[in-house]
Design a protein around this nucleic acid. Sequence first.
DNA 1: TTGAAAGCGATACCAC
DNA 2: GTGGTATCGCTTTCAA
Lengths: 342, 342
Amino acid sequence: MNEKNATLADIARLAGVSPATVSRVINKSGYVGNRTRLVVEDAIKSTGFVPNAAAKAMVTRRTSLIGLIIPTFENPVYQEILKGANDAGVERGFSVVLGIEGEDDKSVSAAILRLAALQVDGIIVAKPEYHSIGTAEHLQPFIARRLPIVQLGNRDLENLIDGITINDFDCGYAMGMHFARLGHESCTLIGEPVNSFVRERHEGFRKAYVDQGLPLTGLAVEAADFSRAGGNAAALRALSERPGTSAILAMNDIMAIGAIDAAERSGRRVPEDLAIAGFDGIQLGALVRPRLTTVIFPTYEMGRSLVELLISRIDGSCGGEARQMVFNGRLMVRESTIRTVL
Amino acid sequence: MNEKNATLADIARLAGVSPATVSRVINKSGYVGNRTRLVVEDAIKSTGFVPNAAAKAMVTRRTSLIGLIIPTFENPVYQEILKGANDAGVERGFSVVLGIEGEDDKSVSAAILRLAALQVDGIIVAKPEYHSIGTAEHLQPFIARRLPIVQLGNRDLENLIDGITINDFDCGYAMGMHFARLGHESCTLIGEPVNSFVRERHEGFRKAYVDQGLPLTGLAVEAADFSRAGGNAAALRALSERPGTSAILAMNDIMAIGAIDAAERSGRRVPEDLAIAGFDGIQLGALVRPRLTTVIFPTYEMGRSLVELLISRIDGSCGGEARQMVFNGRLMVRESTIRTVL
DNA sequence: TTGAAAGCGATACCAC
DNA sequence: GTGGTATCGCTTTCAA
């Protein structure tokens, strides 16, 4: 609103009551006589009065704002997280403010700073790829100031922050079993294990080969930045350096899709010459050809849970200890690893 | 922030100056002696002081918040718009608050109400599909209250609101020429002309046939809700009711992609048996097979321009009249309309 | 160049 | 049940 809007005091005058009473009516708090309530409600309606959130925030020290930090939109996972977070937030009376700046840890701090200045009640950091292992140090100053924060994707080894993760080891294991059963001994993993979630997927993957009794003689790891272009480049490197590579597992779907392009460009048929799979379960994976084998995560639900975790932290309805919530991924086999799915 | 944070008054005490001076330092406004400035800046740094935006908003009547209302994330166009809007906003000191509720005009009003209560400085309504022709009446109450609003996609016939559109007639015309040259006389347009942008695309499409001298004997229009599923259903209807249909033009890419699935399911080869095209130029269109012919819109730039238009309206640096900004689409021919692109 | 003090528009505590 | 009023943290005249 730009011009003069009615204020609570105006309503009070109009209804012939005190500001305190108007406030009670608005917030449905305390005792208000039935007749007075009606009079006040009329005044509110006739003026189209909307309480000033900034004023309210000043005294309650709550803005009903939640900051959501995500890395990018190129990867559709974040849309679903965003959607889930926004839905759950709005249902509970919160609005979501975006924090999408650059790609590294520093930019997370910048975003948090901006959001903190807005007095958001809490912040969701959904930028797993850019965290390093362990409790992210760049979050420490904010934790110290008791700004409620929940993070997505990485296990907080020091158990200081609430967070949501996937059973990454199991997901890696499921992919490992799938690849091992197909007999792939020369695999390239795209995405280095510098974060807890990637590391656990790698470990699960290897464990599956051990359990299956298949040697993983040609295992290689290619670094990549979790983008489609990055996945594409990593796959091209892998294929030219190790032409014998028979399977690629990217740490997310969008890189896997980049890898499919790379395979095509280098004249390989997928899956006949090269099997490719990813993680996340983005819808795009079912639209590309060949359809992408993946591990599907319940991203929308995870978005919802992130704000629920955060809100319970904000209103203190949870204990003091940090909570970790773990979701399950589900292996989805499609054409990019086996031509004929049974 | 949850617990006690330093306040401006604390800084003043610490630096041995008055609150007014601290305020001047923070906002780089008015005169401040060089030495005093340094002292104050030190105090700010050592405490990690962050000014309380709510308090500031109360007195300045500005929150530096922009509301962004979009319909859905299923359609990737909105990601780019969102990204553009967020980038441009942050660059200019604004933060973006999301408004994604349901799909109809009522939900737009609900979202605006929520955002207005937050005292956002202005609102972007980027929900073209759900506007009806002419100035959207559901926006009127907010315009009356002088809440700055800019809209995307529909021409505001009464010229009351700032807005951004595409040269929809020309885009429709370009598609019409493309289809006419390919000799398609039985076309189905998916998406009814109930909004200005759809209507103009239809008109341009028809005009091209006239100019090209080709009869458009089998033109049909199928209603659809601008979702992939909607496009899919509309295409299935079209193909079963009018088996002679040789081309489908969907009013957006995501519906066109749904139509490709429909073609596949009904045993038609694209483009040999059925040509399919859309509008928007989402990246997904280049990933599906066959690759989708489309008209590419500069969505990221449009997102940026939306906030620039809005901000100039907020700070009053523009005249009183509503402005319409028109962007150009670019025809991109791919495999879904001609097997061999020259 | 700096300080004092008056609000901004709600809430919530304490009387009545 | 209802009213009076101090208060939140900052900006902004107006004086000095």
